[in-house]
């Protein structure tokens, strides 16, 4: 059964452009060989919320595709051993889930800056302290 998947690649921003494009090209051919590539997006170089392999930034690439298990194993195996990939994740997603890139902010650490007024004030007085 073919399902919808998303692959997010976090490439080493310090690797050369050619090396990064080579990985992306390889991933694309693999997906097209074993499934349907729906969308390939470049989120660009983003600051990460925490350090990975002594890097603070990563080049994020996003792929949305349909495929089956052999393709996923193939991708997983090859990305795991390829140089220049900080991290990769394949997520099973709902067909209706959005494909928009996450918003970039100058301070990825600023959690809670966009909090709504829901329950603010009296509600939080009663809730357990957070720290």
């Amino acid at each position: 059964m073919t399902r919808n998947y998303e692959l997010v690649l976090m490439l080493d921003a310090e690797a050369t452009d050619e090396a990064r494009e080579a990985i992306v090209g390889d991933v694309k051919t693999r997906i097209e060989g074993g499934g349907d590539l729906d969308l390939a997006d470049n989120w660009g170089i983003r600051k990460m919320a925490y350090e990975i392999d002594q890097r603070n930034e990563a080049d994020y690439r996003y792929f949305r595709f349909k495929g089956e298990n052999p393709l996923l194993e193939d991708l997983n195996h090859n990305l795991k051993i390829s140089e220049g990939v900080l991290r990769h994740r394949i997520f099973k997603v709902d067909p209706e889930s959005p494909t928009t890139a996450p918003p970039t902010s100058d301070r990825p650490h600023s959690v809670g800056s966009e909090r709504s007024d829901d329950g603010d004030g009296r509600g939080f007085e009663r809730s357990r302290r957070d720290d």
Binding site: V8, M10, A49, Y50, R87, R89, P108, V111
Partner: peptide
């Protein structure tokens, strides 16, 4: 989002 370092584990 945390796995992808989009959000921190420890803020």
């Amino acid at each position: 989002a945390r796995e992808l370092a989009l959000l921190p584990y420890v803020g």
